[in-house]
Each structure stands twice: as structure tokens, then as C-alpha cells.
Simulated assay, not measured.
Amino acid sequence: MTETAAANPYAWRREVRTPAELAAAGPGNRFVGWPYTRNTVAVMEVDQAAAVVLVGTELADRLGVPREQRIYLRGWAYAEDTWEVAARPSLSSSGAIAKAADAAFERAGVGLDSLTALDVYSCFAIALRMACDAMGLDPLDPRGLTVTGGLPYAGGPASGYVLHSTATMAGLLREGGHGLVTGVGMHLTKHTCAVWSSSPGGLLGDAAPVHIASPVEIVSLYEGPATVAGYTVAHARDGSPEKGILVVDLPDGRRAHAHVRQAELIAEAESAELVGRAVRLAPDGRVNVAVW
């Protein structure tokens, strides 16, 4: 992604970086929420703008837009995952991405293997990984996952990034082919997929039916044993760890949130895999606190 951004004259960060440079925390690259450093997450503090003009064929003809310059929206779809992250049956997969992608490809009459280029929304690495899993796409696909360099490197004004990826894709497709542009909203909650093409066709239709999996019940306060389902460590702006944040499975199938406050346990959370770890929760005011 940094190589793509370096070749993009509109990118906000145009330095080629190695994976080790991006992942290693240090001065100028603090942890934001472990395991993500500043250089691996979206940069929104940018001075950028993009625009997309979408018209019908009749108006394009009247305006004299050359046919070889026209890019067509062949198919698109929208779906949602359960809003509360901890209430999602699976914390590591997205049924909504799969649903939106399948509907977009079906409407476009174009499959994943037929795509010339892709831009998968890239606010965090997990957004890319989940999208690849949902679509059956190899993260190391030789076509790459971005045409701009992605949110951490090309930059983008929040969800307005999709205007940049769409505009960049349009320029690429004037040489022919099909392209996929995806978007994400909230905490990996809202998902869009759009197939663009140098040739007309497909069926636009309406938005795909909203996909909401049956949510898992969340318990506010809980005392007793639990199992870690997912976690992170929040860091202060000076890079120091502040607290661990857990989502845990309870013995009865429900879930709860918990903080980790002890420094030695926070350090262990950043050095060992906690998912699947047995912990014990005890309420402290309005917050559950976990130890093991």
C-alpha cells in the first residue's frame, strides 16, 4: 500500500515503508490501540477533496462526453452488521460484507476473478482482512487491494475517502476493465460494494436488504468466570498503555465488557495471545474489571 501511495501524486503520505517500520512502535509511531500503530491506521487530518459526477447516458450524449471516457456503475449493494460490536456472533468475520459483495457481483454480472483493480476500504488492517475473508480474496492478490494507497497513506477525509478511491478507479478503468470499490461506516458496521466498468451492463437495483445477525445479549455487570473473545489495549497520546479492554464470553452464552488495569496484566496482553484465556470479572462501580 505504501508503494502505491508513493506513486500517487494526490497521496498524503508518499514514503515507501517496510512492514517492520510500520508495525514497530516508537517516536512518531505510537500505539493508538494495540496492535495498531499510528502509521497503520487511517489518517483523516488531510487537506483533500474529490468529486464524482454521475449522469445518465442521454445527458452524456448531449454533453458530448466521448464514449471511451465513460465509466459505468454496473452493480452495487449495501448491508449492515449488528451495530454493537460485542453483540456480533463472530468478532472476526462479517456476514454483511459477504452479502453486499455477492449482491453487487450478481447485479454487475462480473465476478471477483474478472476484476482489473480493487480498492478495499482500509481504515484498519482488520477491515481489509475481514473483507478478503468474506469475498474469498487473497490479501496478497497481485492486483493489490488499493488503487490510491489506502486510508493510512493516501489519506482521506473520513468516509469521504470513497470519493477518492472511486475517482482514481474511474481514471484507471478508462483503459478498460472492471473495478471494485468498497466502503465502511462506523465500527465495521455499514458496508457498500460497487462494481465500476468501462462497459455498460448489469442491473443497479435497490440497496441489498440490510443484514443484521441475531445479536448476542450483552450483560452490563457480571461477577465470575469468563473467556476472552477479543481485546485491545488503549494508549495515551504519549504512547503509554492506559488500560486493556476486553470482550468476554460468559458461561451462559452472553457477553460482557471488562477493563484490565494492572500494569503487569496489560503488558502481558501486548505480548501474549489472550483470546481464549480464562479470566475472572468483578464489578467496580459501573465497570467490570478482569484478572487472571
Results as ranks from 00 to 15, higher is better:
87 A>N: 01
82 T>I: 13
270 E>Q: 13
108 A>Q: 01
11 A>D: 08
10 Y>L: 15
218 I>G: 05
227 T>A: 01
191 H>F: 07
142 P>T: 02
239 G>W: 03
11 A>L: 07
144 G>T: 10
222 Y>A: 07
253 G>L: 09
112 L>C: 12
144 G>D: 02
292 W>L: 14
243 K>D: 10
13 R>N: 09
173 L>A: 11
87 A>S: 10
116 T>E: 08
248 V>Y: 04
273 E>H: 12
14 R>N: 12
60 A>D: 04
137 L>M: 10
62 R>P: 03
89 P>Y: 07
166 T>D: 00
64 G>Y: 04
186 M>Q: 08
120 V>R: 02
182 T>I: 11
292 W>M: 08
96 A>V: 10
225 P>Y: 07
24 A>Y: 08
223 E>L: 06
128 L>I: 05
237 R>V: 09
264 E>V: 14
116 T>Q: 10
194 A>M: 15
32 V>M: 01
196 W>V: 10
46 V>M: 13
190 K>M: 07
227 T>M: 01
174 R>M: 14
252 D>Q: 09
18 T>E: 01
268 E>T: 13
16 V>Q: 12
41 V>S: 08
133 D>G: 08
204 L>P: 08
280 R>A: 15
39 N>S: 10
32 V>P: 00
103 A>G: 11
112 L>N: 11
222 Y>M: 03
134 A>L: 06
194 A>Y: 08
142 P>M: 13
44 M>W: 15
184 V>A: 06
28 G>E: 00
290 A>Q: 06
22 L>E: 00
258 A>L: 04
103 A>Y: 09
111 G>M: 10
275 V>E: 05
178 H>E: 03
250 L>Q: 10
269 A>D: 11
212 I>K: 14
242 E>N: 04
97 I>C: 12
27 P>F: 01
122 S>A: 01
33 G>C: 15
